[in-house]
Each structure stands twice: as C-alpha cells, then as structure tokens.
Amino acid sequence: MSARWKVLSLIAVLALPLPGLAADAVKGESYFAVTCGRCHRAGGMGTGILSRRPGIPAQGLLEQREDLTVTFIEAVVRNGSGNMPRITRAEVSNPQLAEIADYLARGKK
C-alpha cells in the first residue's frame, strides 16, 4: 500500500459500509447509518472535515455530540453547511429527517 493510501486508510479504518442493520435498531439510527453514516461515521468525509475544524467536539462524530438540536440538524441537512451539500426530500424524506434529527439531538429541540 502506498504512503498516501496508508495514511488515508488510517483515518478510514472503521469506514467499511454496513453489512446490515440490527433488527432492533431504532429507526433514527437506521436512517442515520444508511443516509448519513457513509460520511458522518468514523472514516467518512464529513467526520474528517469536521474533525479538522476548531471548536467541533467529539472528533467530528455527530453521534457522540451533546450539542446538536433538532432545529439545527434539519436546517443543515436542507440548506447545506460548509462542504456539505444540501440533501433533497427525495433522498431523505421529512419523516426520515425528523427521526434522524431526534436520534442525534436526543430530544433537544
């Protein structure tokens, strides 16, 4: 493996796609894993960018943050933020987004 890919693989070592979701996984977590987790779990693009940004907690991992609110998540998903493109309703519907936001914000509006 080249130096470049070796370095890149270090940050991506946990980024293997999900082979399947546990049957008892809550809806919000399931939706997050499939529609957001490719970029926002360990090794993903979003995590990598956020982890380099000053003042972002939990090494950029959204699922470990305590400061997220439903309103904030919904706004970022539909309006984009920084390098994150906007996500359409066709890709993540409003009910799915509500489940995801609730999962990440743990009830904080």
């Binding site: 493996m1 991506a12 070592v13 990598g48 390098n83």
Partner: peptide, 26 residues
C-alpha cells in the same frame, strides 16, 4: 478482511475531503 479503499472496490467518501483544502465553503 477487505480494507476501506477503492482498490478493493470498497466504497469510501473521504477523498472528497479535499474540497475543504482552502477552508471556508470549499
């Protein structure tokens, strides 16, 4: 085990982190 890199056909997103090279909205 497969490694998380495209040489093994494993999908990844992290290469697009390069859009943040300049900071700001890349």
């Amino acid at each position: 085990p497969l490694e998380p890199n495209p040489f093994q056909g494993v999908p990844v997103t992290f290469p697009l982190q390069n859009a943040a090279w300049h900071g700001g909205r890349g």
